[in-house]
Nucleic acid binder design. Structure first.
Ligand SMILES: [Zn+2]
Ligand SMILES: [Zn+2]
Ligand SMILES: [Zn+2]
Ligand SMILES: [Zn+2]
Lengths: 132, 132
DNA sequence: TGTTATTTGTTATATTATTACAAACTGTTA
DNA sequence: TAACAGTTTGTAATAATATAACAAATAACA
């Protein structure tokens, strides 16, 4: 059998919720919201999240321990991700900038290490919060 | 009184331990190791860590929930950090590359957001692990 | 069908981090 | 000095995040 093509029921339930959300969701907030759909234990949510991250349908915002749906159709896997995070309202946006991704994907330093993945988080104030 | 110049006792104890370590340390591992020095509760460690991160003496590796001492003398505050992380042996190195930091510090996208901070984590295999 | 691998359900537990509040210490000023 | 304000510390309790272990159900397929 080749790599999974379809999402399992639990994965789909979790993905639907994350995609509907306008803000990053935390695992236990997801759990609370899918309990009526039958996912009763943390592990069921974490398993779904793990798989969805692996296949690039969602990303984890590491500094917030929260998850967002990928809005970037060219982002099939979670191996080159960049986000902007407002430190006031906590709005998170996935950055889709080909120059940036090219620059980082090709980045090499003198450590002899070959990078195959990166995650970048920018922090600041969004337009709205800046003007308050 | 102006901004704190000297570290408190607890901060110094925690910093000493993190600086001595060749690998990122987790908060509860730090706690275990400083208990003989009198820091008995998680909060004492977390408070020290928070302050040390704030003043740039240490950095948090977000994807690992672990802390490393800053090896970069020009890095007074934790507002522009980049790390390479080996996914096999978990070795972490702070990247000190002025081109990269200049590029990211000056990065602007079309969101109207002004960034004042970023954190970048590269993943891959270090030289040693690559040749296994 | 029987066999294997994957996914799921369930309980328990481990790990990471914060709240709340009282006590001790530090520097300032009446 | 004594009162005070601000900061740091100690302590207990608890919240929030994440994983281990194992049995049951389901899916792929020879
Ligand atoms: Zn994406
Ligand atoms: Zn904002
Ligand atoms: Zn540094
Ligand atoms: Zn390695």
């Amino acid at each position: 059998m080749q790599k999974q093509q379809y999402l399992t029921k639990n994965q789909q339930i979790v993905l639907d919720l994350v995609e509907k959300s306008s803000e990053p969701l935390k695992a236990y907030s997801i759990l609370f919201n899918v309990q009526k759909k039958g996912l009763k234990a943390p592990l069921q949510v974490y398993r779904a999240l793990d798989k969805l991250v692996e296949i690039g349908k969602i990303h984890k915002i590491e500094s917030r321990n929260a998850f967002v749906a990928c809005k970037n159709s060219s982002c099939q896997v979670s191996k080159a991700t960049a986000f902007s995070i407002c430190e006031s309202c906590e709005k998170v946006t996935e950055i889709n900038n080909s120059k940036l991704s090219k620059y980082l994907t090709n980045f090499e330093d003198n450590s002899g290490m070959k990078y195959n993945k990166y995650n970048l988080e920018f922090f600041g104030l969004c337009k709205k919060c800046k003007n308050k």
